[in-house]
């Protein structure tokens, strides 16, 4: 199958206040086929959100910039495209929903206006048609009484409702790719499940591809077919979801899976308590030294891990990992 979206060798850099340059995304590769859901998982600060912004063309410049790489949508190079072409793509072919539904809607415009704005812009609909489309979209995301809600303001809706509005807005132009950045993190657990069900249902209807960005392996297991694990701006492991959950290779991935108890295929007898990965993601300023960025937190780190960056290797069929453990004993 040809890839719908291809990210190749993507690097994003930020100028820091002290004059140094920090790579927040380093040589990232992955691809996405139509109708598929790709999960990108990692702790906060690992570069997931920046990857999404890079695909959208919304990396704040300055101080940031896409330093290297290719992002191609259906064969078209986006990084080389003009700003006006990128705007045509944004919200139309590739759209995005954000983590904070409470603050991601403009407080001074009605939700109908904000949904309709996208279709008026990209599809040239009249004000009236755009309003009708907004009502249809609200109905599609299961908001009750959409004819009434369309004229309401964001502050009149709950967080879950607002995220539904965000989804309606993002899907209004039937994009080929939907990027969902932690779409349920700010919501109640029960609402989270509803939002995931909704996304799956809508994906079946529209055959959009979804990039789901999350720190929660449970969400990945529920939603995605394929998963990329990121750590400190790098991809450390990539595989199909079933393979990843049953046969994780990277110590970091294992740690992430262990954080969600019911995901573990064979919970070890001696460990019934929840685990956590010790330490925190290194700050951008601390990166840039040689060696695997995870080494300082890794229980299985060897001398080599501190000195040399591990290459990405194929550990199993369609399963890539960057870890010295597997280079030595594949």
């Amino acid at each position: 199958m040809t890839a719908l979206l291809e990210v190749n060798g993507l690097s994003v850099e930020f100028d820091l206040k002290d004059g140094t340059v920090s790579r927040v995304i380093n040589d990232l590769n992955f691809s996405l086929t139509a109708g598929q859901t790709l999960g990108i998982v990692g702790e906060s600060g690992c570069g997931k959100s920046m990857t999404a912004l890079a695909i959208m063309g919304l990396v704040p410049m300055p101080p940031g910039r896409v330093a290297d790489g290719v992002i191609a949508l259906a064969g078209e190079d986006l990084l080389g495209a003009s700003e006006s072409r990128r705007r045509e793509v944004r919200g139309n072919d590739v759209s995005m929903i954000f983590q904070e539904p409470m603050t991601s809607l403009n407080p001074v415009y009605t939700i109908g206006d904000q949904i309709g704005e996208t279709v008026r812009l990209h599809q040239g609909l009249s004000r009236r048609d755009a309003r009708e489309r907004a009502v249809d979209m609200l109905r599609a995301v299961s908001i009750p009484a959409p004819e009434k809600r369309v004229d309401e303001y964001p502050h009149q809706l709950s967080g879950g409702m607002r995220q539904r509005v965000m989804i309606a807005m993002a899907l209004a132009c039937q994009p080929q790719v939907l990027i969902a950045d932690e779409p349920t993190t700010a919501l109640d657990v029960t609402v989270q499940a509803q939002i995931f069900d909704l996304l799956k249902e809508l994906q079946e209807q529209t055959s959009s591809a979804i990039i789901l960005i999350t720190h929660d392996m449970g969400a990945i297991a529920e939603m995605a077919q394929r998963v990329v694990v990121m750590y400190a701006g790098r991809k450390v492991e990539e595989a199909l979801v079933d393979e990843m959950l049953t046969n994780p290779k990277h110590p970091y991935t294992r740690g992430l899976i262990a954080c969600v108890p019911h995901l573990e295929a064979k919970p070890s007898e001696e460990r019934k308590v929840l685990t956590e990965i010790p330490g925190v993601v290194p700050s951008v300023a601390e990166l840039g030294r040689g060696g695997c960025p995870f080494a300082p937190r890794c229980a299985e780190a060897m001398d080599r891990c501190h000195d040399e960056m591990p290459p990405e290797i194929i550990a199993a069929h369609d399963h890539k990992v960057a870890c010295w453990m597997h280079v030595m004993a594949p």
């Binding site: 930020f14 927040v24 906060s44 600060g45 690992c46 570069g47 959100s49 920046m50 701006g233 925190v280 993601v281 290194p282 700050s283 951008v284």
Partner: peptide, 10 residues
């Protein structure tokens, strides 16, 4: 965003 996520150490 990554830039704002500073480690929570003293």
């Amino acid at each position: 965003m990554m830039i704002s996520d500073k480690p929570a150490r003293p």
